[in-house]
């Protein structure tokens, strides 16, 4: 039932403003792709082009190898969940879920069976006859997902569907959404600006900014080996600091030296990204220390301790496990342990 999607050279201009530039992307059959980026990066425009609500200025959309660029949205056979969910307020829950089936001319009895089946899947078997306005936020969410999946879509599209929920409910819904997607085996594209959500859901992560794809790959891969400083900064908490390549090829940053084989340009400026959790805090006299810093701010979050530590001009965000740091206080001098192997270097 499910299909694979290829996007080739898609661009979108609004007058002289370019919203998307030459996007190439492919989604494998049955996999879950997240479009992640800050607001205004073009991710929603790209999703709307896939759904058919916007026309690309250039490029092609291939569904199992067939170009669907010119097909109107109602003939594409995709299921979509909208940011506002867009459940029809004049229809009951059952009528909402059955709407796509009704349009396909499926008989009443089979519509009813399918609605019942879906309500069981979303674990809300008793709400069929309720008006949409009488549902809670989480219930509405599930009904919107059920409505989109009822028609066995070739492609399942979601536009920041969880953004209206509170944090706890959102986490539960993420897990449920992932399980539903697996169960139906449907090729899925989800747009979000929440990096935790993207990491949680995606098989494949596509990071966008200013209308271009900055990096794409498995979430762990993108997290561990970001392609540039933007990606490193956007995904997780990273410190991006300035460094300089010395004559012998070593990089000087934060008053420490790191040998890095990728960068051999002497005298060049580089950016170094270091994740907050990859910085160790040690005694100022410890032989393990790579550099020295001064604690500016500490807060104990329970499982972890977050601190801001100044090294020269740079201020680093540091996340330590509570068990590793016994006592940190503002104004204290500490040693920092930074492993260059866990840092990413980008030439500027």
């Amino acid at each position: 039932m499910s299909t694979d999607l290829k996007i080739e050279g898609v661009s979108k201009n609004y007058g002289s403003v370019s919203a998307l530039r030459d996007i190439d992307m492919s989604v494998e059959r049955g996999s879950f792709l997240c479009l992640l980026g800050p607001s205004g990066c073009g991710k929603t425009t790209l999703l709307r082009i896939i759904a058919g609500f916007e026309q690309a200025t250039a490029g092609r959309l291939l569904l199992d190898g067939t170009d669907v660029s010119g097909v109107p949205p109602h003939k594409r056979g995709f299921g979509m969940v909208f940011q506002s969910l867009a459940l029809f307020p004049h229809m009951s829950v059952a009528q909402n879920i059955a709407y796509g089936l009704k349009l396909r001319g499926i008989d009443k009895a089979r519509q009813r069976d399918r609605v019942e089946e879906l309500l069981n899947v979303i674990e809300l078997p008793t709400i069929a006859d309720r008006p949409v306005a009488a549902l809670s936020g989480g219930q509405r969410q599930r009904v919107a997902i059920a409505r989109a999946l009822a028609v066995q879509p070739k492609l399942f599209l979601l536009d920041e569907p969880l953004s209206a929920l509170d944090a706890k409910l959102r986490e539960n819904m993420q897990i449920e959404l992932r399980q539903l997607q697996r169960k139906f085996g449907v090729t899925t594209v989800l747009v979000t600006h929440d990096q935790t959500e993207a990491m949680m859901l995606a098989d494949q992560l596509v990071i966008m900014d200013h209308g271009v794809i900055r990096q794409s790959g498995a979430p762990s891969e993108v997290y561990r080996a970001p392609a540039d400083a933007f990606v490193a900064d956007f995904l997780g908490t990273a410190n991006v600091v300035q460094g300089e390549v010395m004559e012998d090829g070593a990089v000087m940053f934060l008053g420490m030296r790191a040998q890095d084989k990728a960068l051999q340009v002497q005298g060049a400026k580089v950016e170094v990204a270091i994740r907050a959790e990859n910085i160790g805090v040690v005694e100022k006299g410890s032989p393990e220390r790579s550099t020295l810093g001064r604690v500016e701010f500490v807060r104990d979050l329970g499982p972890s301790v977050e601190s801001i530590i100044a090294v020269g001009e740079e201020k680093l965000r540091v996340r330590s496990r509570a068990s590793e740091v016994t006592s940190l206080s503002a104004g204290q001098q500490v040693g920092l342990k930074i492993d260059p192997e866990l840092c990413s270097f980008f030439s500027r």
């Binding site: 949205p73 109602h74 056979g77 867009a86 796509g100 028609v151």
Partner: peptide, 11 residues
């Protein structure tokens, strides 16, 4: 979004 939702469902 109501109109687009209907359209995406095949209307």
């Amino acid at each position: 979004e109501y109109l687009e939702a209907a359209s995406s469902l095949g209307a």
